[in-house]
Design a protein around this nucleic acid. Structure first.
Lengths: 234, 234
DNA sequence: CAGAAGAGAGAGCACTGCTCTTGCTTTGGA
DNA sequence: TCCAAAGCAAGAGCAGTGCTCTCTCTTCTG
């Protein structure tokens, strides 16, 4: 498994990692559009064609970076979830939101890679869907835990949306009421709307107190999915 | 002003429009990253260097397309606002949201250009900020109208956020309570979170009933900014 | 130890954005 | 009316890109 197989194999994983590191550096410096295979190779002291032994195309390199980025936000979210007060669902929720935003602000280009415009003709391979779902699953687990503990009450869903919400709940969080599931999906997307607007500059020259606005919005989102402050129900 | 000045000047605006049209076509077909000046020129039967008489760089061409795209969503939103029942604020709100989403789904690449990752090293010039604000202003005007008519009541803001919200309200909608202003900014960003997730494929293999989910979420957003159903207060 | 497989190097193709020079055409003032 | 100035198109060329193909050398495996 993790046994050192041979010099060649070890070298391969090392070079692969070095390529990804250098690519990530260029990504952070200039953005995905200016990520150049030749520049990466040059910086690593190899010739561009040699790089194709490790990644069959530029898109494949980007895919690797995409997966890493999803894993990075995902684990940031999971870390925040693990350290938040388990008895305070709204606090857990905002902690995850804040962690996602913090990661996005410190890694804007990686964030753009995964939550911005999809790259040209590129189709996200199946490999990405598992890491991509980690933040969503973290959010869902907060609601699921809160529901198990105290129950969540939300106004009933319109007729048209209920089957879909039931299907999603069955698939992602058995036992969760469909109203909560629908609210979760919406809140998930809306969270990234808040983050994207900030990272992509839509708040430039408009919103100054971004920390405060974000925290406020995150709390409202928690409320929207039915997470209640314990202090109100002693 | 709009008088026909001369053959040369008229030709110039025609060629400029033709370039933009062709560029928009390539944008729709392949995305911003694959928009090639040479290909545009080729398709128009001119040589690539001639195109630089009209746009000093590829980025300037993109800027022109960005402004057009902002104007397109903006006017779609304004059209929806104009045709919705003026006495039903939540209906006006959802109408604008639905119009924005519809435009985004029919023009995914143009949408990505303005609400996706900002292009490489590119800084949005001042020219774009006015068209970029049209959707936001439409949403604000709904709340302002509703507030003038019936008043909007929302829970008070936390201390830290109030000054910012007051500043924004004074700047964008004098008379609007700061709570509403804060909710509007958040809802504005969250709306585009919903749209982006759908356009950029985050809902692929996950959410099926997207019309229903979006409408539901848009209604909840209306509620979140304090827009009330008239039927409840006869 | 020999053959297979892996890895790097180099040349080359077709493409990109962009610049510069060279002519031609339209324009506006003397 | 004529002529210089400005606008415009074309072509060549530069530096860069992703990617392929061939060749050589090294390492691994049976």
């Amino acid at each position: 498994m993790t046994t050192i197989r041979g010099a060649r194999e070890r070298a391969r994983t090392e070079v692969t990692a070095a390529i990804k590191d250098e690519a990530r550096g260029q990504l952070a410096a200039e953005g995905a559009a200016k990520l150049s295979l030749r520049a990466v190779a040059r910086e690593l002291g190899m010739v561009s064609s040699a790089l194709y032994r490790y990644f069959p195309s530029r898109d494949e390199l980007l895919t690797a970076l995409i997966i890493d980025a999803y894993d990075a936000v995902g684990s940031a979210a999971e870390r925040a979830l693990a350290t938040a007060d388990p008895a305070d669902p709204p606090a857990r929720w905002t902690a995850v939101c804040v962690a996602v935003r913090a990661w996005a602000l410190t890694h804007p280009h990686e964030y753009a890679l995964i939550y911005g415009s999809p790259v040209p003709g590129y189709q996200a391979p199946q490999l990405t869907i598992e890491p991509a779902s980690r933040v969503g699953l973290a959010l869902i687990s907060i609601a699921a835990d809160a529901h198990r503990a105290d129950g969540i009450a939300l106004p009933p869903l319109a007729e048209e949306l209920r089957p879909e919400a039931q299907r999603l709940a069955a698939q992602l969080a058995p036992g969760l009421p469909p109203e909560v599931m629908a609210a979760l999906i919406a809140a998930w997307a809306q969270l990234f709307g808040l983050v994207s607007f900030e990272v992509f500059g839509q708040f430039n020259n408009l919103v100054e107190a971004r920390d405060e606005l974000f925290t406020h919005a995150a709390r409202r989102l928690a409320h929207e999915v039915g997470l209640m402050d314990r202090h109100r129900t002693p």
